[in-house]
């Protein structure tokens, strides 16, 4: 069958959601951020909640998330997104409110804000991108950097004596009474993407059911920071990140 016979509107099975703007993403080739942005956009489209969704972007590579999803956005100070989300949801309970935060933003400078928002059981969604490195500032150690992992500030590898241990913040958050759904996912292949999308959709649905905070960690890649190709980065993630940050639901109630 001729390819032009197939490429017709009625045969279209997958394409860019209109929730995504036409702006070209500023992320490096192969960066997980783009996939997670797309998933959130698709969930918003499928749930029909574009005009009811407020996103809160962090400081870090994804500070510019607001350039890509056509919804209302707040850009928070470093680590403070859960505080903004708390007030936004409490003042506008009919809105879907989510934060989008990296490992530096959420697990380092914003530890207090995320812990207490989750502990209060704010009816918000927290999307946590964990790529074990600071991307925007040029590849420095993150709280989630693995032992032995080389970064700009751990040039000989992360050492516990010097830098402490990688922080499993999602496990900590799962302990908090205020959270209803805590899960760790990834986006390196189609099956993983579909699982993450299901998780994010569930998190958005939870936020309207007054069940508490939903927290979705996405173990991600930073091929520029890790200094490997995008395909190698996915492999490195599977081999090194997944054993320490195992995928799956930690809590679902």
């Amino acid at each position: 069958m001729d390819i032009n016979e197939i490429i017709k509107p009625e045969n279209k099975v997958y394409g860019k959601t209109p929730i995504l703007k036409d702006n070209i993403l500023h992320y490096c080739p192969g960066c997980s951020h783009g996939v997670v942005h797309k998933i959130i956009a698709e969930v918003i489209e499928e749930m029909g909640i574009q005009d009811k969704t407020i996103g809160i972007s962090p400081v870090g590579c994804s500070v510019f998330a607001y350039n890509y999803l056509d919804i209302d956005w707040q850009q928070a100070a470093h680590g403070r997104a859960p505080a903004l989300a708390t007030a936004t949801k409490r003042l506008m309970p009919d809105k879907y409110v989510f934060t989008y935060q990296g490992d530096g933003d959420l697990a380092s400078i914003g530890t207090a804000e995320v812990m207490h928002a989750c502990n209060r059981g704010e009816n918000i969604v927290i999307i946590f991108i964990n790529n074990a490195i600071y991307g925007m500032t040029g590849g420095q150690m993150a709280p989630t950097t693995l032992l032995g992992q080389v970064t700009a500030t751990t040039p000989y590898g992360r050492k516990a004596e010097l830098n402490g241990y990688p922080l499993k913040i999602t496990e900590l958050i799962a302990q908090l009474e205020g959270t209803c759904y805590v899960t760790r996912q990834s986006v390196q292949n189609p099956a993983a993407v579909r699982k993450t999308k299901k998780a994010i959709r569930k998190a958005f649905e939870n936020s309207m059911m007054k069940k508490g905070t939903s927290f979705v960690e996405v173990v991600s890649t930073c091929n520029s920071g890790w200094k490997v190709t995008p395909v190698q980065a996915n492999k490195w993630m599977e081999e090194n990140m997944f054993p320490f940050y195992p995928l799956g639901d930690m809590k679902d109630r």
């Binding site: 707040q74 928070a76 505080a83 903004l84 989300a85 708390t86 003042l91 207090a112 804000e113």
Partner: peptide, 12 residues
């Protein structure tokens, strides 16, 4: 956190 809650609320 208080002032950032104010920031979020003011955004609305």
């Amino acid at each position: 956190s208080s002032i950032n809650m104010v920031y979020g609320g003011a955004c609305c």
